[in-house]
Structure formats: C-alpha cells, structure tokens
Write a protein that binds this DNA or RNA. Structure first.
Lengths: 174, 174
DNA sequence: TATTGTTATACTCTATAACTATA
DNA sequence: TATAGTTATAGAGTATAACAATA
C-alpha cells in the first residue's frame, strides 16, 4: 500500500548515482515516514505555522486567537460553546483564550438577554481594527503559499485536506 | 486572492437552496478561515493524528516516538543530533523522548568509538519487534487515508505538502 | 573554541474531572 | 436533569539559556 515509494525514485540514466552522503546531515534515511501523510502533514503544518506566526509577531498574535477573532467578526454575539465547536476547541480551553483577548481589549463578553448562563462574544472597536491588519497579513501569507504551489495548487490542496477528514467531502472521480 | 471561495459553492439547480440553519451548530460562518491553508492544515493534521494515535493506543505509542523508532531502524547508531535534525526536534527536547524509549526497553544509547561525547542510538530487539507491529498499524492507517482521497490523491497531496515547505520541490508546470 | 548532550524552565495547545449558576 | 461557563490539573510538544564533558 504505497509502502515503498522509495523505489519510485530510481534514475533511468545508466550512470550509477553515487550514494550521495554529500549533504552530511540530510543523509538520514526516513524509511516509510517519507511517504506517510501524518508525517508530511506535521512538517507542513509546523512550517506554515512558523511563517504565519512570524507574520503575526508585530501584533503579538498567534493562529488560534486570530481564528477566534475572525469567527467573532463574522458572528457577533456568538456563545463560547459555538465558537469552540466551530474551531475544534473545547469549552474549557477556550476560557483562558477569551480571557486573554478580553484583557487585551480585543473582545468582550456581554450578557445574553434570555439566558443568564451564557455570554455573547463581541469584537471591540480595537479588536476589529487589529483584526483588519491581521487579516491582511494572513492573506499575504496565503498568497506566498499559493505561489509555491503553482496554478490551481492551492485549491487542489484545500480540497484534498477536506477529503482527508470531512466525511461530507467524498473522494474525487473514482 | 481566492478570498471568496464561498461563491464557488453555488448550486446550478433553479430551486433556491434554503439558508440551511438546519445543522444549528454548523451554521457558524468561518469567513476567510474557510479557505486558508494554515487552518485547513491544522484541522487535517489534528484529525489524522487522532486516528493514528487511536491505532497506536494498544501499543501505548504516539507519532513522535514512533518516528524516532523508524529512523533508528533505518539508521542504526545515529546520534541524537542527527535524529533531531531529521525529524525537526531540538536536541534538548529529544532527551526525554529517548529517555522514555530507553526506559521502556525499546531503544538504547551506546558509546561511540571515536567520540566520547556522543551516543549512538539503536533499537533493542524488543524495539524492533514493537516497531514491526506499529508500522503495520501505520500502513493500514495510511491505506484508509488513501481510500478517502481517491486514486492518485495521496501522491498528489504528498507532492503539494512538500512544495509548501521544502524549497527543493519547485511549483509544478506554470 | 566548537560540539554533544544535558538540566532547568516556560509557554502553547490539548484533555479530563468536578464545580457554579442557571435553565 | 441538562446546559453554559468555569476552575484545577495534567500531559504533550516546543522554545531559550546555561552548563559539563569532550573534541
């Protein structure tokens, strides 16, 4: 089941390829990891997140709180539980994240009219302004990624990633 | 720059689609996150890792120590620094991982002949046997993923992920 | 001086259990 | 009895600084 992708890298030229310990450190054999999706996903996600966080560094922001701000901007008044569900964050882990956004004056909790248990979440003015700059940074980052992938590559990658975990995205033409 | 992928989900049938607040919770608007790679990568990686760790649960194993075992099996005697470089783990964070593998009797540190600072890392017999079972689980998991992606999807996804972060994989035909 | 490995430490992200105040 | 939010806590994973032994 694709365990030996390694064999697909055979050269067709007649001159034998030198074992190439040239790179010294890159000479480590990864075996089946080389063609395993979980490993490729980890590497890609780490690299992409590092880049995004570098782009966000000037605003002292990270991917997760940014995602919360984006969701609040499109769904003002949303409750914490719904934000958590949308982003895959458990309610319990959302609390300190919202706390931090509130302390920085970017978001706020407001009482919900008919349910005194719940909090409606809103961006502040400052939050909206900050988010505008962050979204510009994120879009620029996304454009850099798209350039590396070539024409159509980004859309293709998004579709494949969705198929990987979302049952509503069936496999392509069989 | 692909900010409105949302519009690409238009139905071509004449009957207007109901706004579908049907799902109740899925009715949260994600805005630009919906088409951002860093977000799609996070979701995909989390799902895939959850599945892999479920597959590894019987052996009490996780993705990172598994990757170390794989590397040691293909490169016996490798030094910690090289393992870390190959897997993107800092030397300092590798120490407790190797400690744990050693305590479980799966790997061991041996002195290196000509350099008394370094440790050569090796799988134990038990480590090799355990790894064989783990690799079978991982291959089965990989096959399940491949099935979701349809024919050629897995190879396509691997190529795109490499292009995303590895400068040695240039964009496809422009 | 530089390198290999290590300790100590801190931060982010994720996970479970138990609690409160409402409904 | 169930739900929204919270506290406390623990475990991965990752990061920096400083150190010992050796090269």
């Amino acid at each position: 089941m694709g365990a030996n992708d390694t064999l697909m890298h055979m050269k067709t030229s007649s001159a034998p390829v030198p074992p190439a310990p040239s790179d010294d450190a890159a000479a480590v054999e990864l075996g089946p990891l080389r063609s395993m999706l979980h490993h490729a996903l980890r590497a890609a996600q780490a690299g992409v997140m590092d880049e995004l966080q570098a782009a966000f560094a000037a605003e002292d922001m990270r991917a997760l709180p940014f995602a919360i701000l984006v969701v609040l901007s499109r769904n003002p008044g949303l409750r914490q539980i719904q934000v958590g569900f949308a982003l895959g964050i458990q309610p319990t882990n959302l609390v300190p994240l919202i706390d931090a956004l509130e302390e920085r004056g970017l978001a706020e909790r407001r009482p919900v009219p008919r349910d005194r248990r719940a909090h409606g979440l809103f961006l502040t003015r400052l939050g909206a302004e900050t988010l505008a700059r962050l979204e510009a940074q994120a879009a620029a980052h996304e454009a850099r990624l798209a350039e590396r992938l070539g024409p159509g590559g980004r859309e293709q990658l998004l579709a494949l990633l969705r198929r990987l975990t979302d049952p509503r995205h069936p496999p392509a033409q069989d």
